[in-house]
Design a protein around this nucleic acid. Structure first.
Length: 787
DNA sequence: ACTCCTTGGGTTTTT
DNA sequence: CCCAAGGAGT
């Protein structure tokens, strides 16, 4: 390790051994390098890796950091505790949680489980699910938890209750309370509980608190600007004894306030630690001057920020570019073509990224890249693990590990079908409430002459089911995850169920299940995962490859925790949020439109729009060499065609650094200058057509094209109905599939499809009396009904 | 009990 | 558009 690799500010931050440190690290300022060197330096100074904890934003970031430290100072660094808040503290809770009433094998509920549970509670309380929408309820509960309000605290806050009443959710405190009880009963935690319970553990168990405080002589927190109150407090408590806490962050990159991140954590660091040293890393090593200057001009529009000047000694590089395309399809096509030329010019795929605001934007770019045979990979959170068949298998695994996991039980008790229907389930639920035990334990104890009217046949089925699950459970500790998983898939009947099906769709499902098993296999065979026993203090490395550990690991995976081998050479597609902390030579930031980016949801407050701007700042600063912005003037969103306006953010970039090309004036598809106008056919009658459609499918290891049944809905009026009023000449852009039009010769019809050939838009129209006709819109004077 | 289909509602970002 | 829930028919 050579400290000369660092600039003076970095070196000072690396070598200060004692006391609290805040590193305000601008984008690309060598933050990771500084953290890495700091840990390596500590180790060289004789600090045991066992006494260091590094909290990062993704598991991948932790792993990379560890690898780099190993390169610097050797394998001893393997014993370092590094990972996300959720993964590290969930591990500690596995060991110590029994002190606050949690088994070692507690389940982590994902959002889906939580929402189902909430829906059930809302139903049980006879509340209107229109008012108590599960997403809203969950996010409200989440907010409360992140700020460490227990259900009891919540109930005693008139201001919270009043706020809830305003949105017709006055009973939310009750829902929260029951939700928490039910989680407990199921021996489950949601994501926020991991942090909440870690706080409880530190508050109520003095022995644990002191042990951890003493152990973590050095604490490092990355992306500190995105920690919430709950995380903040954990860190603060852990640091109380040694006070060697080092936080790294950039207020300009705070983009997670929607999940409780509190920017004041970083702004107030000096209040908590008056003796803290602040280091500012302002030299950017990543990007060209043009990119940095442009980024600075953007963020200058925000009022709230720590003053700093990011600069770079790198070359000017090329100007940023902005291109306005006429439609979302064309935008995707343009980006695809541009990427093809990037690659021809010698750029490697993995150094190119397409960044967007919302996940739903990815599809168009997938299609475009596939058409051009450019390999790509999408980083989208849970796309693989949220597939039905995968969730089914995981539910088996979860129930095997934790019998009290009611959501898992509900999911698979009748999958594959074994004749347990709604009636039996209703009775079993009543039984479980009466007996105050989980569904599984209730089922297990049922007798043929039970008091709940459950039929003999059903009782037998339930007991058989429990016996099967139990036969797996007893082997958890003696068999590795892969072996057990394979057996479960086989013996549960899932494999048979899926392989009996003839549809290509079901074949894909089977393949996905196999893929999951492959994932389990590599989990078992991968030797890198080291677990330091935080309970005994022994520096041991357990290769714990059991099912419960596997489940825990995948439930806390982040979207970018993808095996590097799988992304090799591939263009990367992800949301800007997911791109945080990453960098690429060429970056395409797409969908630069008002209402999309900035999101329409952000217009309410200045804070929200500032957060969107920080998000844009993050996007821009991902690029090393080239940055391309693009937008589409027409975009299909939620089944509607809408006309867009260029994002205000484009205009906020200092013109000196931007080459702007807007095809608005020359487009053959010029539309009325009507801002954010969107057109919905007035007719509500729908026809639903089921058709097979090729569509991309992202599995664990590759992207493939699969056939999927989709239902397409077309709005149309019943044949023969003619209306005489309110017709007007149609704009080209309004003529889109599904729209009803009128022609002077052919009468009324419905647009079947449209295409643009040589700048001319054509439409195939199915006329009620004359059948399909292809019309060139320039000549055909089509009319549309005014709405 | 199960399946298919209609209907309705929502729609940012994620551990 | 996409998903989920509920209804109707088997």
């Amino acid at each position: 390790m050579n400290l000369d690799d660092l600039n003076i500010e970095q070196r000072n931050a690396v070598t200060q051994m004692k006391g609290p440190i805040m590193i305000v690290a601008g984008a690309g300022s060598g933050k990771t390098r500084t953290l890495t060197y700091r840990i390596a330096h500590l180790l060289q100074q004789g600090v045991s890796p066992y006494n260091i904890i590094a909290l990062t934003f993704t598991n991948k970031a932790a792993k990379e950091m560890k690898d780099r430290i190993i390169d610097l100072v050797g394998v001893q660094a393997n014993a370092l505790l590094a990972g996300t808040f959720h993964s590290i503290f969930s591990r500690i809770l596995r060991q110590e949680g029994y002190k606050i009433g949690y088994d070692k094998n507690y389940t982590i509920y994902d959002d889906d489980d939580s929402k189902k549970l909430i829906a059930d509670i809302v139903k049980g309380l006879n509340l209107d699910d229109k008012n108590y929408r599960k997403g809203k309820v969950l996010s409200r509960i989440s907010q409360a938890k992140c700020a460490l309000f227990s259900p009891m605290d919540y109930e005693n806050r008139p201001d919270f209750i009043a706020e809830d009443e305003k949105s017709n959710m006055g009973m939310l405190y009750k829902v929260y309370q029951i939700y928490q009880n039910r989680l407990r009963q199921s021996m489950a935690m949601d994501f926020d509980d991991i942090l909440f319970n870690m706080n409880i553990l530190l508050r109520d168990c003095k022995d644990v608190k002191e042990k951890l405080q003493r152990r973590f002589e050095y604490i490092l927190v990355d992306e500190y600007q995105d920690t919430n109150y709950s995380q903040y407090l954990i860190v603060k408590k852990l640091a109380e004894y040694h006070r060697n806490i080092c936080v790294v962050g950039d207020d300009a990159q705070s983009i997670y306030s929607f999940r409780g991140a509190n920017i004041s954590n970083i702004l107030n660091f000096n209040k908590d630690y008056p003796d803290a040293t602040t280091y500012k890393l302002e030299q950017n090593y990543r990007s060209t001057k043009n990119i940095i200057n442009a980024a600075n001009s953007i963020i200058a529009h925000n009022e709230n920020q720590i003053p700093k000047t990011i600069w770079t000694a790198n070359d000017d590089g090329s100007l940023l570019s902005y291109k306005a395309l006429s439609s979302d399809r064309e935008e995707a096509d343009w980006v695809g073509r541009k990427i093809a030329t990037d690659i021809e010019a010698g750029e490697v795929g993995k150094e190119i990224a397409i960044l967007y605001r919302t996940n739903s934007q990815s599809r168009a770019f997938e299609d475009s890249l596939r058409l051009k045979n450019i390999p790509y990979i999408i980083y989208s959170g849970t796309s693989f693990y949220s597939r039905k068949e995968i969730k089914d298998v995981l539910a088996y695994l979860r129930l095997v590990v934790n019998h009290r996991d009611d959501e898992a039980f509900l999911r698979i008790i009748n999958y594959p079908a074994r004749g347990i229907g709604a009636t039996t389930m209703d009775r079993l639920k009543i039984a479980s409430q009466t007996m105050e035990s989980s569904l599984f334990e209730t089922a297990e104890r049922l007798t043929f002459d039970n008091a709940f009217n459950i039929s003999k046949r059903a009782v037998q089925t339930l007991i058989d089911f429990c016996t099967m699950i139990n036969s797996f459970t007893i082997r958890i500790d003696s068999v590795d995850a892969y072996t057990l998983g394979k057996e479960i898939v086989q013996r549960s009947g899932i494999k048979t169920e899926l392989s009996l099906m003839k549809d290509t769709e079901d074949k894909d499902r089977l393949e996905n299940v196999e893929e999951l098993l492959v994932g389990m296999q590599s989990f078992v065979e991968n030797d890198e995962e080291n677990i330091v026993d935080s309970l005994t203090g022994e520096e041991i490395s357990i290769k714990d490859k059991t099912l419960d550990v596997f489940l825990q690991q995948i439930s806390l995976m982040t979207s970018t925790d993808v095996d590097e081998n799988d992304s090799e050479g591939k263009v990367k597609l992800m949301t800007i949020h997911a791109a945080k902390g990453l960098e690429f030579n060429n970056v395409y930031v797409v969908g630069m439109e008002e209402n999309l980016f900035p999101s329409a949801m952000s217009f309410a407050t200045r804070d929200d729009i500032e957060e969107e701007r920080r998000l844009f700042y993050v996007a821009v600063t991902r690029a090393r060499k080239h940055l391309y912005l693009s937008s589409a003037k027409m975009r299909f969103r939620n089944g509607e065609l809408s006309f867009t306006e260029t994002s205000r953010f484009v205009g906020e970039i200092d013109k000196k650094y931007l080459l702007s090309e807007d095809t608005r004036e020359t487009s053959p598809l010029r539309v009325k200058e009507k801002i954010n106008f969107s057109y919905t056919p007035r007719e509500k009658e729908r026809t639903t057509i089921t058709l097979k459609k090729k569509q991309p499918l992202t599995t664990l290891h590759h992207n493939v094209l699969t056939e999927k049944k989709t239902t397409t809905t077309i709005n149309l009026k019943p044949k023969g109905v003619v209306e005489e009023d309110d017709w007007r000449l149609a704009d080209f852009a309004e003529v889109e599939p599904g729209v009803k039009v009128r022609h002077s010769k052919f009468g009324c019809g419905v647009v079947v499809s449209t295409e643009v050939v040589d700048r001319d838009k054509r439409a195939v129209v199915d006329f009620f009396q004359f059948g399909n006709k292809t019309l060139i819109l320039k000549f055909a004077k089509l009319e549309i009904k005014e709405n």
